[in-house]
């Protein structure tokens, strides 16, 4: 595990070299409805793709289809936001990325999510043969409601590291501190690391959970509406944090707050009724969406 932020420039160079065919998988769910101008620049032109969702469908309990034929690229060291009306399948899609659906019986994935599609060692995250535990160690998650363990602040952050076999010692302490600093909460908790995690405020708890996710130096962090249970000031801090973190880690964030998507994300994907309607650079989605549904949703006409 590297503690330095991953070099974005190197990644970008690599991406331009490795990905010769821009927009390779577009054209299925992304078919424009309103405009006919398809001759747009590839939004992923100067990025490297961290994960690529291909024809992904997901079924709850074997029958309820909550995600339908989704294609989506998640660029590295960038923030990708998933927006859409309540119940459209954002959370469901997000939880496919670390196989959380495996925890409940009868759930079924179809299609694939390729992690690191371009480095020759790509794995299909949702393939049965792929270890769910490994995926969860490489792809962390921050939940809607803060869910610290009923343990000390230190132990909360240390837990993922302990799962990886790290024992008490300087490295553990350092990594915990690093994660807490990374989650911008170090100054608030450094004097009470042994206090229980639930003694913190809601916003602090959520940053503690971010630190917990960050501590294991994941490749992707999944955020599921991380601020919906928080007040505006705490929300602002989390947003700042997400913005800072993208130099270190790829971020996929679900939000139903469009201002939030506009503020923190580089790319935005709009989902509607289990399908992915449109994905593009965030400023383009918000200023000039290609799809009328997207346009209507963004301008607040439904949802």
């Amino acid at each position: 595990m590297i503690l330095e932020p991953r070099s974005t420039s190197r990644a970008n160079n690599a991406a331009t070299l490795i990905e010769p065919r821009p927009g390779a998988v577009s054209g299925i769910a992304l078919a424009p409805v309103g405009t006919g101008s398809m001759a747009q620049a590839d939004p992923y032109a100067d990025t490297r793709i961290k994960a690529e969702v291909r024809e992904l469908s997901f079924f709850y309990g074997g029958s309820v289809q909550a995600v339908k034929d989704v294609n989506l690229k998640v660029p590295e060291n960038a923030v990708t936001a998933l927006i859409g009306p309540s119940g459209c399948g954002k959370t469901t899609l997000l939880r496919c990325f670390n196989r959380m659906h495996d925890l409940y019986p009868g759930n079924r994935y179809q299609g694939s999510i390729i992690l690191n599609p371009h480095d020759g060692r790509g794995v299909d995250i949702v393939d049965r043969a792929t270890s769910a535990l490994e995926m969860r160690m490489r792809i962390s998650m921050v939940f809607q409601k803060p869910n610290p363990f009923p343990k000390s602040i230190f132990e909360n952050v240390a837990y993922g590291l302990r799962l990886r076999g790290l024992r008490n010692g300087q490295e553990l302490r350092d990594r915990v501190e690093y994660a807490l600093r990374g989650a911008a909460i170090w100054d608030e908790v450094k004097d009470r690391l042994q206090k229980p995690g639930y003694a913190l405020s809601g916003g602090q708890q959520q940053r503690l959970c971010i630190a917990r996710a960050l501590a294991v130096d994941p490749e992707i962090i999944l955020f599921d509406e991380p601020t919906s249970a928080l007040d505006p000031i705490a929300t602002g801090r989390i947003e700042e944090l997400v913005h800072e973190l993208k130099s270190r880690v790829t971020i996929l964030i679900v939000t139903h707050n469009m201002q939030q998507a506009a503020r923190v994300s580089d790319f935005t994907a709009f989902m509607y009724l289990a399908e992915l309607v449109e994905v593009d650079k965030t400023d383009r989605i918000f200023q000039n969406p290609a799809n009328t549904l997207t346009e209507q949703y963004i301008s607040g006409r439904f949802g």
Partner: peptide, 23 residues
């Protein structure tokens, strides 16, 4: 025990037995 606690541990890659034993 809230489901969220189990998920928090699973999301870090804990196995089922580890979640039971440690949480």
């Amino acid at each position: 025990i809230p489901q969220a606690i189990r998920e928090a541990a699973y999301a870090l890659g804990a196995s089922r037995w580890q979640v039971i034993r440690q949480h």
